[in-house]
Every structure is written in C-alpha cells, then in structure tokens.
Simulated assay, not measured.
Amino acid sequence: MIKNHGNLFIISTPIGNMLDITYRSVKILKKIDYIASENYKKTLRLLNNFNIKKPIIILHQHNEYENLKKIIQDLINQKNIALVSEAGTPTINDPGFLLIRECHVKKIKVIPLPGACAIITALSASGIPSNRFCFEGFLPSQKIKRKKKIKSLKFEKRTIIFFESSQRIIQTLQNLSKEFGKNRKITIARELTKYWESIKYITIANLLKKYKKNKIICKGEIVLIISGYKKKHKISLKVQNTLKILNNYFSLKKTALLTSQIHKTKKNLLYKYLLKKQNSDKNKKIL
C-alpha cells in the first residue's frame, strides 16, 4: 500500500430502519471528503437524519465506468471516499465492484465497515439451514430465462437465496413449485426492519396459496430463502421386514445396527426410520 493515497470506505447503510447504521459508519461519514452513492436522494436523507453534510456523486451501473477514473484519481490525491449503495452492503447485487477492483490494482486501501445486509438478515431469521448457502441475486425477468435458471438450481443442496420483486412473486412461486416440488420449505422475508416487516416459514405450495388468496400483500422488497435439495432414501420392504423382526427383541439402536450390518445400509438412516415409525405408532394409539 502506498501511504500517500487516500482510503476507500465501504459503508453499509440501513435497509429500512435508520437506527441500524453503526456508530463507526456515522463517524467515518463525518470525516471523509465525499460520498460515492448509488442513489442521491436516499443517501441525502440518511445524511440529513444524522446531521452530516458531505458532497455526493452518483455511482450506479450506468455510469460506473465513467466515474471510475475520477474517484480513483481523487483517492490517489489523498482524498478519503465512502462508497454506499441505495440500502444495505455495497456491491452485494449493487454497483461498486469495478471501483473496488481498481483500488486493489492501484494499491489503494479498501476498508469495509460491517453493517446491514438484507440477505444475511433474512437468512438469520429464516429457520432454514444457514451453514451453507448460495445467493443468486434477482431471478431473470423474462419467463423463459427465469424458468431455466430455477431448473438449473433444482438439485442445489445448499440453501438458496433470491431477491424478487412484488410484481413477479406469484410467477416465481409457480415456477419454484413446478421444479422444486410443492412441499419444499421456503421463507419469505418482506420489508425487513420496517414497521410492517413480515417473515414467514412455509411450504412453497402454501405460500403460493396465500398470495393467490390475497392473504399476503404483494408489495415491498422481498427476499426468498429456499431449503436445499435433499435426496430421499427409500428403505426396501426387505429391510423393513428385518427391522420389524429384530425390533421385537432389541432396542432401536441395536436393531438399526444389526440391520445395517445385514443389509449393508446406513445405520443412522435406519435409526431415523425406526424413530419416525415409533412416533407415528404412538400418535395412532392416542387417536
């Protein structure tokens, strides 16, 4: 890093609730020379809310190449600049990637400040596994391309995250239902951090039904989180019979172990099957 250069600060801004900006972000915004923003009006509203007065230049997908040289030159001339998006963390489905890459090439220090991010906020409250996931941004708006994209993710084992617009949500759910199956679990997070925030964990079929019956308002910013593909393991009738016989004499664990050795099958799979069957039999007795 060349010491005489300025720094580029990547600053996350609130996705709804203004109080979600960090103390550190406000402090840096007060100190930098100017702000490169995706949306002038929203950034100005944020600055006014915290009594910050700084020049703003626009940096969006249509002028990123055009303004790149100016910003880089200003950084080389020791100016400190903040990069902000319309809402959330810059470059996550937003402009700024080209600028950051060029900073690395020119040995200009890039300093990211943690903060609000819609996909992580939604994922944390989704009830769907979050240890492995993929983010696919917005699905294509064209019907054929959207269907093709969804089909390509049918067997994705990781949790899948999309942004979707309120205008296309019903069509997308119909496509998902057809390819992923009606019973695949999905969480829809709408208008996060706002007063009318809504987070629902449900099956694709039931979510589609609610939208069609107008039980969910088709408005607002939407994050869809879909559980990954799980291969269904079928237990043959022969194995089921062995389990049934052995379970008359042994515990569930011992039965699963012996059956797995006889039929060369996974012990854990058999044990889960026995547990499920035991619980099902108990419920039948209660009824």
Results as ranks from 00 to 15, higher is better:
Gly220Asn: 12
Lys200Ser: 10
Thr187Asn: 04
Arg190Val: 04
Lys231Ala: 07
Leu208Trp: 02
Asn183Arg: 02
Lys212Pro: 05
Ser227Leu: 01
Thr193Ile: 12
Ile188Pro: 06
Cys218Asn: 15
Trp196His: 15
Gly181Asp: 03
Leu192Cys: 14
Lys213His: 10
Lys213Asp: 13
Ile217Val: 10
Ile188Ser: 05
Lys209Ile: 00
Lys212Thr: 02
Gln174Ile: 08
Arg190Cys: 14
Tyr201Lys: 08
Glu179Asn: 12
Ser198Leu: 11
Ile216Pro: 09
Glu197Met: 09
Glu179Asp: 13
Leu192His: 12
Ile199Trp: 03
Asn183Glu: 13
Lys232Trp: 00
Ser198Glu: 15
Leu208Ser: 10
Glu179His: 06
Gly181Pro: 05
Ile225Ser: 09
Phe180Glu: 05
Glu221Phe: 13
Ile216Ala: 07
Tyr201His: 12
Lys231Ile: 09
Leu207Cys: 14
Lys210Leu: 13
Ile204Phe: 06
Thr203Asn: 03
Ser198Gly: 01
Glu191Met: 08
Tyr201Met: 02
Lys232Cys: 01
Lys232Asp: 09
Lys185Pro: 01
Tyr201Gln: 06
Leu176Tyr: 08
Ile202Met: 08
Lys231Pro: 03
Leu224Asp: 09
Tyr229Gly: 03
Ile225Arg: 03
Ile199Leu: 04
Lys213Gly: 01
Arg184Asp: 09
Glu179Lys: 03
Ile188His: 04
Lys231Ser: 12
Ile188Trp: 02
Tyr211Leu: 14
Thr193Ala: 14
Lys212Leu: 14
Lys230Leu: 07
Glu179Tyr: 08
Lys210Asn: 12
Lys200Pro: 02
Asn214Val: 00
Lys200Thr: 09
Ile202His: 03
Ile199Asp: 07
Leu207Thr: 11
